[in-house]
């Protein structure tokens, strides 16, 4: 046997210069990948910013007119570029879908976190995840195939006229689409509420209903709010379902059964139209995109800030 530790006899080789060089190389490469994510954000900011500036430089519209204009008719003469009808359309659909998704999503989260046993949970959670995996184009088609005809038929019985393209059916399918998001985010929040709070309430004789609604949900309220805001922001950025279901009619109208155009739908309609690249109409989609980006970004930042504060509270 060799004597242990004798350098001459040992087959161990010191990691030479090559290994050290490799370490540096890998470190640098991985760091550059991380920097790439920063560059993506920077790219979005630069692209949206510079093209928006180009749009306003064409002299068709001033930023103030753009933000407060109530008509969006790029093909009219003179063309009108006002973002408010698009913002209105977006808000109608977002608020409508939230009215559907937030209560159902929260109730589902409470069920999964407070009521369901391990077996039920392990079946229901994957199904909800599958629902989240359905692409948005499918929801748009569902609106055309099922939701709109159903609405037209049932509301036709009571004499309400429903257009082929309408905000209501878009809101319904977008609502269905964001349920899994609300329920899975809220469930994480509810499960993070310390067990001790529940036990204390049970010890005082509270029923499960009282524990859920008066202890667990209030304790997780800020986190639930964060998940609501995130779902809201997702609904704002939703494109294909809205394009197919709500149509392309930019108007400010209180009638939810009429067609509206959202910001995302406007971007798609200009892209598939024949406005040449660099024309004011084509550049206007970057201005609309900037408004869309800023709206979702601010909502995401608010939600992130709430979640961070919430985590500090309980862990």
């Amino acid at each position: 046997m060799n004597r242990p530790g004798d350098p001459a006899e040992s087959r161990w080789k010191s990691p030479g210069r090559l290994v050290r060089w490799q370490e540096w190389f890998v470190h640098g490469m991985l760091a550059s990948f991380a920097v790439l994510t920063i560059l993506t954000t920077l790219g979005i900011l630069v692209v949206l910013g510079s093209e928006t500036v180009r749009f306003f430089r064409t002299g068709e519209v001033t930023p103030l007119e753009f933000l407060t204009g109530t008509a969006m008719r790029p093909e009219a003469d003179p063309p009108r570029y006002g973002v408010l009808p698009l913002v209105w359309g977006t808000l109608v659909i977002t608020v409508g879908s939230s009215l559907i998704a937030l209560p159902i999503g929260l109730a589902a989260a409470i069920y999964l976190s407070e009521y369901a046993n391990f077996r039920t949970r392990s079946i229901l959670k994957p199904i909800l995840e599958l629902l989240a995996g359905v692409p948005t184009i499918v929801y748009g088609y569902l609106a055309l195939l099922l939701v709109t005809p159903l609405l037209r038929y049932s509301l036709g019985l009571v004499g309400i006229k429903v257009d082929t393209y309408n905000a209501a059916s878009a809101a319904i399918v977008v609502g269905i689409m964001i349920i899994p998001m609300v329920s899975s985010l809220s469930e994480d929040v509810l499960r993070a509420v310390p067990q001790g709070l529940r036990e204390a309430a049970y010890g005082l004789g509270a029923t499960k209903f009282e524990v859920s609604t008066q202890v667990v949900v209030p304790a997780g309220l800020s986190g639930i709010m964060a998940s609501f805001i995130l779902a809201f922001s997702r609904a704002i950025g939703e494109t294909m379902a809205v394009v197919l279901a709500a149509g392309q009619m930019p108007q400010i109208s209180p009638n939810v059964f009429a067609s509206v155009q959202t910001m995302t739908a406007y971007i798609v309609s200009v892209t598939s139209g024949d406005a040449p690249y660099g024309s004011p109409e084509h550049l206007s989609l970057f201005a609309v995109g900037t408004v869309l980006f800023l709206m979702t970004l601010s909502l995401n930042l608010i939600s992130g800030a709430i979640l961070r504060r919430y985590r500090e509270e309980y862990s």
């Binding site: 950025g237 970057f286 995109g289 992130g304």
Partner: peptide, 23 residues
């Protein structure tokens, strides 16, 4: 970097489309 990635995850897909168009 972490916060940046979290925000990127929330950017609407159509905005990536605008980025891809120009970039």
């Amino acid at each position: 970097v972490q916060m940046n990635i979290a925000n990127l995850a929330g950017v609407p897909s159509i905005v990536y489309g605008l980025l891809g168009l120009i970039l």
